[in-house]
Structure formats: structure tokens, C-alpha cells
Design a protein around this nucleic acid. Sequence first.
DNA 1: CGAGGATTTGAGGCCACTCAACCGTTGTGG
DNA 2: CCACAACGGTTGAGTGGCCTCAAATCCTCG
Lengths: 237, 237
Amino acid sequence: MNRIGHIRQYDSGITIVAEGDEPSIIGRVASGVVRITQTLDDGRQQIVGLAMPGEYFGHFFRSGSAFMYEAATDVAACVFPQKPFEALLASHHGLEHTVMMGALRDLELSREWIMVLGCQNTFERVVSFMLHIHKRMRMAGVPTHDRFIEFPIGRRDIAGYLGTTVETISRHVQALARQRIIRILDNSHFEICNLGRLQSLSKQHWNAMAKSITTSELDSGVPQALKGKSWSQSGLA
Amino acid sequence: MNRIGHIRQYDSGITIVAEGDEPSIIGRVASGVVRITQTLDDGRQQIVGLAMPGEYFGHFFRSGSAFMYEAATDVAACVFPQKPFEALLASHHGLEHTVMMGALRDLELSREWIMVLGCQNTFERVVSFMLHIHKRMRMAGVPTHDRFIEFPIGRRDIAGYLGTTVETISRHVQALARQRIIRILDNSHFEICNLGRLQSLSKQHWNAMAKSITTSELDSGVPQALKGKSWSQSGLA
DNA sequence: CGAGGATTTGAGGCCACTCAACCGTTGTGG
DNA sequence: CCACAACGGTTGAGTGGCCTCAAATCCTCG
């Protein structure tokens, strides 16, 4: 696997794979966050997913890329040419199984997000985003951040992910702080003062959900050296 | 595969798998449409996906079900107990590969839908839904419906899928008919009068998208007997 | 220290939801 | 056979949440 792939660094804002690119690549995030976006003909664009450390991105068994992959922060990733990677999958069923588990988990997260976008108002979406990030931090195996939330991406990207605007996010975050549910440390760091209240505001049943996800992947595979103080290299977009 | 599974019929509206159900089942739709929903604590619910003929539904390699699976129309499905099915996947890599391809396709569709919900207004969503249905009809291998659209589910479910209301859908469908872009045959059947205009209204680049999906799965595997005049058994919800 | 970007705050307008009534179809019982 | 209820869909009027536009503030970096 190491023979066909190699580590590459991407600066924040760099496009890794453009929409429609033909001979595509597969990547595995080592550190940082990759944003997965799609663009409408009139230029509007929506962030449809985020790839965090340990997760794969790119298109398997497809010709053209329907999505664009960009570095939302400074990113280190292990990248593979598509064809050899697919050949590797065919010969190593254990690896194919791992990739499938990742796809199933992404599918589950995507469908949760469809619900967030489909029937929550913008306030609830902001809350859901915070809890979503909080959950994935724990999934990525970051231990110290139990009471804290770190936004891995800037307000503009969050707005793109939530299907709303930076102004609306700002208002709702400030409202949460006024209600003493969170405490604002700086633009991208928060302390959770009342986790129960936060969860109830999102209206999602975290009791049932938490275990089904958390127990799945703990082998994030991120080298210890990269697990430093912050899982996103804090090079905000 | 036939030894561990068996065909079962579900009447429209029946719950196949409830949220949180423990020993779950895997199913493959033979005819009809299965709706995949998620519920908020306060009762709001969102349709996060639809399973159409030839597609699998249910949870693989998970303990509790995060979603609810219901028959949106009268449904015939081949169902398997989860554990034996997973064992079958482990021993038949070809089947596992097929399931993975399905998961990857579902993921792609989910992300497209995230974009629809995240940055399109309700009018554009109605258009996208029509084209989405149109696309999946062709994927399911229904030949005659090139100029026609059939809503496989009722207005209530469409509203649940689009994250809007039945009233809003009604207004926009009527608007499309007034602009002579579609012609209303009955409540769930439409003729496309101007496909190009319809596609441009959705603002999605169908040129790039169409091929990448259509070329993938043609082995829908639906028995000929079920491919009759209508792929949904027209037992509308 | 100044320029630029990101975030916050404020005021106004529009889209879509809510509530309500109406219409066509279906199924049921007298 | 018709009356009636039940249901899904359509149409209309009013309201509110969120986007838009605009300006102030904070932070970063040269």
C-alpha cells in the first residue's frame, strides 16, 4: 500500500480534486480537514461533507468526479492513483471491507445531515453542528476535548455546510453564549457549560445514536506525531 | 443466498424496521418503494432516502438501527436476517463488492440531496425531485418512461423528502404546468414538455452527472414479471 | 501603524410556513 | 343508487424566520 501512495501536503484553500476531473485520486487524511463540495450552475456551492483525519476521500469505481475536494485547513494526506488503489482493493478483501465500512458510516452521517437540513431551523442546525463536531472529535480519538469544542473550519465554511449565512451563525452562537450554554473562548474554541441542554436543543436522540457510531472506528490510524494539541492544524480557511 | 432469505410482502404504510430495533434485517426491494426516515425528539420526521427496486436497505454491521424503514407503497422485498447476511458477505467477496457499490452510490445520491436541501429554494427542489425520480427510473431500467415522470410516493412523503410542505409542492407543480414545462396527467403522472428547460431550472449540471450514474448499474435484478407497466405497484401511499 | 479579512450587530424585505377553505375521488352503508 | 364521510390535493390570505444589505468592531499580518 505504501508502494503506490505517498504523503502530500496541501495548503489551506487548495483544490485537491476538481469537479469533473478524469483520472482521479483516492486519499486518506492524515491531518487537517478536507471539504467536499458541489457547485450549482449559477455558482452557489454547498459543502456536502467533511473528511477528517483517518477518513478516505475521493471517488471509487467512478469515471468523473461529481464533487470537488479542497483543503479546508492545511492538510496532510496519503494519496493514491485511483486505478492502482482499486486493484489493491480487489486483491485485499480486508482493505475493501474497511473502505466499505467507511462508506457505510459516511452514508449514515450524510443521512443524519439530510435530516438536519431538511427539518431543523438555523438555530438547531448550529447546535447540531457543534454536537456533530464534538462527536467526530471523539471518533477521531482526541481525548482532552470532552468539555470543549473546536471549529475546524471558518464561519464561511460552516455556513456552507449548514446551508445558511455567516451572519445567522454568528447570531445563534452569541445567543447560546448569552444563555450560558456555551462559553466563547475565541472565534473557534468553545467550552460546553451545559451539554444536556445543548443536546436537547438539537432535538436529536443522542442516547440511541451515540453508541452505534462511537463503537465502530477507533483505529483512526493517525500517527501520534500528528495528534498534537490540535487535530486540525488550526490553519483556518 | 436464497436459503437464508425469503420474499415478504408489506402493505403501504407498514413499518419494516423501527428506529432502534435490535436484531435487524437486511432487505432487497423487489417492487415498490421503501422510505428511510429519521425522527426528531419532538416528532418531526424527515425522509432521508428512498430504496427502489433492486436496492438494498437496512443496516450492515451495526447494532441498533438509526433509521426507520417503512413501505411507502405496497412493497415486495427479499429479506435476510442480519447476521447470516453479514456472514454471507464475508464469504462471498463478489456480493460484498456489489453491496459496497450500492453504498457508494447511495452516498453519492445522499450528498447530491444535501446540496439540494442546503442551497436550493423550494421551487428548485421540486424540479430536482422530478429529475431525480426521472433519473432513478432509468437506472431501474424502465424503458417507456423517457418522456414521463411518475411520482412513486404521495405528496406528504414528497414534502417529507424535500423538507417542505404539501401546499408548497402543489403550488410549484402547478406553476411548472402553467409555464408549459410539464403537463399534468393525474396526481402522480406527468409528461415532460421541455426537458432542457426543466434541467436548467434545477441548476445542476446534468451533462456531467448523467453518465457517471447511468452507466453503473443495469443489473437491477428485478424479475421480469415485476417489471410490468409500472415499477411502483401504483398502490400509492 | 495601516490594510485587509473575518466576525458581529442592526434594519428591512421576501420566501415559505401556517391556518383555513375548497375540490375531486374513493369507499361505505343505508 | 345515492348520501355521506374520509382522504389527498389545490388554492388563498396572513405571519414570521431568515436572507440581504450595510456598517461597526476585532484580529492578523505585512
